[in-house]
């Protein structure tokens, strides 16, 4: 009786360990499959031009807002602007209240997707919160508002 108890004991520990292992593997597989579908890749305008992004695919677009390109539509809540990385420029549009530090000549990371006409429809704009906060993707970028040139020390 005692012997079978010990046997069973080993057995239960083994079963629990196997279940835990299966769960960990399952978590990894789940994460991998979801990452494949849901991870949004970061694109600079130049990447968009060279690699191409299919319309409707959720991505992050990052760059500088071109000086003089920011326009407000008649409804008062839709804006259009151009995003550049110094090599290429893409048009973008956003409906909503832009973040406090969103302005021409400053950095922006926009989440959204391209429409059929090649305009980037942003669902969310992430701009700098303050002087010390910078979206990581934009680190080291400097934009010259006069010449529209951008330096990236990457």
């Amino acid at each position: 009786m005692a012997k079978t108890g010990a046997m069973k004991s080993k057995h239960q520990r083994l079963i629990l360990a196997i279940i835990a292992l299966v769960a960990v593997v399952a978590a990894g597989l789940l994460a991998a499959s979801a990452l494949k579908d849901e991870a949004a890749y970061f694109y600079a305008p130049d990447d968009v031009k060279t690699k191409g992004v299919e319309p409707g695919k959720a991505i992050r677009l990052g760059g500088m807002v071109v000086a003089g390109s920011l326009k407000k539509a008649a409804d008062g809540v839709t804006i259009t602007f151009d995003v550049t990385d110094g090599k290429a420029t893409v048009p973008a549009t956003f409906t909503g209240i832009a973040p406090d530090l969103f302005r021409e000549g400053s950095g922006v990371v926009a989440e959204g997707a391209f429409d059929e006409t090649g305009t980037f429809v942003a669902t969310e704009l992430l701009a700098k919160h303050d002087e010390r906060y910078m979206p990581r993707e934009l680190e080291g970028m400097n934009y010259n508002a006069a010449t529209h040139e951008m330096k990236a020390d990457r």
């Binding site: 789940l30 979801a34 849901e38 949004a40 970061f42 993707e137």
Partner: peptide, 14 residues
């Protein structure tokens, strides 16, 4: 060398 962001769609889905 790839810049990727993982956001709410991933987390909510799983």
């Amino acid at each position: 060398g790839h810049k990727v962001s993982v956001g709410p769609p991933y987390f909510n889905r799983i």
